[in-house]
Amino acid sequence: MRLLILVNTLDCLDENNALLSNAFHRFGWEVVLGEINAIAADDYRYFTRGVLAGNNGPYDPGSPALGDRETYFLDECQLIWVMSQPEEHVARNVWQMLWIASQHTAFVNSIEGLVFLNTKQALGYVLPKENRAFSYISNDFSLLWERYRQSQDKWWVAKPPNAAYGRNVFLLPPNGPNVRTILQCLTGNAGVPDIGWGGVGGFKAEYAILQQFIPEVAQGEKRVIVSCGKAVAWHGRQARPDDHRSNITQGGKLISVDLHSNEIGLAELLGQKLMAHGINFVGIDMAYPYILEFNVSSPGGLYDAKVASGTDRSDQVAQLIIAHFKKH
């Protein structure tokens, strides 16, 4: 059996590329690490450049995929796992070719799910109201500004719908002096005149989310990895004293935590809802009883959970994925 894992670069593997390629190799699978931005077609047979994993020992996060780079056809694989978003200027073509390939070959996470559900905008679709923060979504600065002004006594969070790693996430205090500027910035400064003779035309608006701040976040967040609807690994994150974001990439502290039964139930409820859309591997950010967001592309957490707990759960992830696709 052959698994193709599509990555952004073969020169530096992230935690999922390393741990999960090792796990599938331990279960006797042939694993190919392929470049997602190199998808191409030979008479409408789709292929990419890649490296056969496992010949140079197990990988560690950050290591390169050593070996000769060869051509691998997608229809010669039994399973494909998209582990990276394609680069923006080729993304439309890559997603289109991968969707066509997915009509004949199984994907761990469906192309439809990766394109349409890998966004903070999807929380209202997959979660009950009591498990998500109240939010406004718009590319109209005036609408978001008016919503904030109507509740200026509350704390809010403003952020882009499709950014990751805590990028451009702002905590807006009551009657904050910079809130107007922040909301203008996040919506593309579309209503701010350009300096210069005659100005510059064109559509510049960008979407932003204005979300009520959840006090539970101050106690720390939990990242939960869910595979085929089962919570398999988790760890805690605490923000720095000088930052409201707990993302590890923003200096958040990794801690070991327990997951109580209600948290497991909520994570698995979301995982099962996503499975109905072909999403079988997801990372969930939780401050119970709220889900803050989820990532279905290449969610970090499996390696961090290993560091925090001392236990590597990648074999359990692989077993669940293999068993799921044997049944389908």
Rank of each mutant, 00 (worst) to 15 (best):
K327I: 06
T119Y: 12
N262C: 07
G283Y: 14
N56G: 03
I182W: 00
G28C: 04
D68I: 09
V257L: 02
D60N: 12
Q211L: 00
D315M: 14
A239C: 01
N22E: 10
G236A: 07
A158Y: 10
F203T: 00
I279K: 00
N109G: 08
D304T: 13
N22P: 05
D14K: 11
P241A: 07
W145I: 00
L144I: 04
R147H: 05
V7Q: 10
V126N: 03
I36P: 05
T9M: 06
N17S: 15
A53Y: 02
I100H: 07
D14H: 15
I80R: 00
S138Q: 03
V282G: 06
P177Q: 05
L266C: 01
L13Y: 12
L172G: 02
P177R: 07
N22A: 05
S138P: 00
G62D: 03
V307L: 15
Q184F: 05
A287F: 01
G188A: 01
N139A: 12
L52T: 14
S227T: 09
V179W: 05
S261N: 07
L320F: 11
R69G: 10
L33V: 05
L19C: 13
F325A: 06
L259T: 11
F170H: 14
A323M: 03
V31C: 08
A305M: 03
A218R: 13
S110L: 04
A122K: 08
A40M: 08
R132G: 00
D153F: 08
M275A: 06
L19E: 14
G271L: 02
D42M: 01
N247R: 05
P58E: 14
D43A: 10
I279A: 05
N93T: 13
I137D: 01
D43V: 04
V169S: 03
R240E: 07
W95R: 02
V282M: 10
P160I: 04
F134S: 03
A323H: 13
L19I: 07
G251R: 00
D194L: 04
Q85T: 13
D242E: 15
R69E: 15
A208G: 12
W81N: 04
V32S: 05
T181V: 08
A287L: 02
E112I: 01
F170K: 00
D243W: 06
G283A: 12
W99K: 12
Y303I: 03
K253I: 15
I225S: 07
E221Q: 11
A101D: 07
A218D: 12
K273E: 14
K129L: 09
Y165L: 13
K327W: 07
M286P: 03
Y290H: 10
G236F: 11
Y72Q: 06
R26S: 08
F107N: 07
G54I: 04
A287K: 03
N93G: 14
G278D: 08
K273H: 08
F73P: 02
A267N: 09
E263W: 09
